[in-house]
Design a protein around this nucleic acid. Structure first.
Lengths: 179, 179
DNA sequence: ACCTGAACACCGTTCAAGT
DNA sequence: ACCTGAACACCGTTCAAGT
């Protein structure tokens, strides 16, 4: 006789997301997630294939938040850059997971990634025209993701004002890309 | 009676570096390193504090290689950017480890990181003058590290020529930073 | 002074057995 | 149809015992 499910994929991903932000990727264990949703570890395998795919789902969840931020931001380079950075400050572990490497199963869905680059492509096209939009978008994304990654990693240790360096980068890119 | 050491910190770090490139961070286990240098796992703890610090030493070793590349490169933005990318292609796992997050013990020595930024600071000063050199260097490093990280992660999936996008970024930054 | 086997706590995963 | 305990292989780490 069937028994009602005691948890759900939605609950599992939400629990994973919370645990990730609290304890980082090493804390995101099947045991921790199972405890949080109130089942035993083996039960999770009725809902996700394995830990890798759970990590991928959590990354996808974080990516959705990032996309919402970008969609709601001002449609210029400064607006997108600040939305990018704001998301990283709010969900540092989620941010890193979105841009992390690892096996395909642990990566967010390529289609979702493509959708997230939409607002950046639009801003790039506004700056340089349709012909160079892809190259310009890659320049912007590389700088923004690199800057935020270094900031989160505590890599800016030579003093100076990090906020000032961020605004400096926005201006330098805007100048370098403007037609 | 003392027995001669059967391995050394040098051997251990070199073995760790090889294993990292072959199998990635998950493969870099104490057991794998011990097997490679010909001892049992517990013996490693006579040479390193724990796995975290071993990872930090391996990251430091990769960072030394990156520094050598940068020191040998042409002293302009294009030269440094290509040296950066060449190192990442040769040692993708080592590259990622250098720019990864994680606990302090697993990160390369801050002083070594500072020394690596030296050639970038010099190029930045050439472009924008001493006053803005730090901000310009951070813009360059953020873009280069972000671009290469995305390339390694396979994040450029919208078609187009990645080499062209790289050169486009070099030109955009040079233009945006030039006085 | 270094190396080892044994042990412990932890993890991911499978599977037969329960309801 | 979902959940569970038991089991397995693996991992990091400690420690007393060897040489």
């Amino acid at each position: 006789m069937p028994t009602p499910a005691r948890t759900s994929i939605t609950d599992i991903v939400a629990a994973g997301r919370d645990i990730l932000e609290a304890d980082g990727p090493p804390g995101l264990t099947m045991q921790a997630v199972a405890t949080k949703v109130g089942v035993r570890p083996p039960s999770l395998y009725k809902h996700v294939k394995n830990r890798e795919s759970l990590v991928g789902l959590v990354a996808g969840d974080a990516l959705r938040d990032l996309r919402e931020r970008l969609d709601g931001a001002d449609s210029d380079l400064a607006g997108l850059a600040h939305a990018f950075r704001a998301f990283a400050k709010e969900s540092p572990q989620g941010y890193q997971l979105v841009f992390a490497l690892g096996p395909d199963a642990s990566r967010p869905d390529p289609a979702a990634l493509a959708q997230t680059s939409q607002p950046i492509l639009r801003v790039a096209a506004d700056l340089v025209g349709e012909g160079d939009a892809l190259e310009a978008a890659r320049t912007i994304t590389a700088w923004a993701s690199g800057f935020v990654a270094m900031e989160l990693a505590g890599a800016f240790r030579l003093g100076g004002d990090v906020n000032r360096a961020f605004d400096y980068g926005v201006k330098a890119l805007t100048r370098g890309l403007a037609r």
